[in-house]
């Protein structure tokens, strides 16, 4: 085991620990941490089993194994980006409804207050 592999394994483990800590402190919801745990595990597996990437590359017919990493990362980034767009869209819609509800309720409270004003 050479230095680079030790560094990679340590970084992957650190990454997983970081995600774990964020989830434990409720900075990330469990449902959203899942995808990051998965990413960290993939990193860890590939740093422990060095031959895995070469085998995978051979399977896809890629001559230069590291070239396989770029499209995989790109695809993951895209999927994550889309996932966040979905989450933000839902949040925006929920937020809109809440703002409308607050406005309507404040109006109703004001109405009730004037109706029940002691004479």
């Amino acid at each position: 085991m050479d230095n680079i592999q030790i560094t990679l394994i340590a970084s992957s483990a650190l990454f997983l620990f970081f995600i774990f800590e964020l989830t434990r402190k409720k900075r990330i919801r469990e449902s959203y941490s899942l995808v990051w745990f998965l990413a960290g595990l993939v990193l860890l597996v590939f740093s422990v089993f060095r031959g895995l990437l070469d085998k995978l590359a051979a399977l896809f017919g890629v001559v230069y194994a590291p070239a396989l990493i770029i499209p995989v990362i790109l695809l993951m980034g895209l999927l994550l980006g889309i996932h966040f767009s979905i989450v933000i869209s839902k949040l925006t819609e929920d937020n809109k409804r809440l703002i409308q509800e607050v406005g309507l309720m404040k109006h109703r409270i004001r109405q009730l207050e004037t109706e029940n004003k002691p004479k």
Binding site: N95, V102, K106, H107
Partner: peptide, 10 residues
């Protein structure tokens, strides 16, 4: 008139 004030611009 009746006024509904939205707390955030929509």
């Amino acid at each position: 008139v009746d006024v509904v004030r939205l707390p955030i611009n929509l």
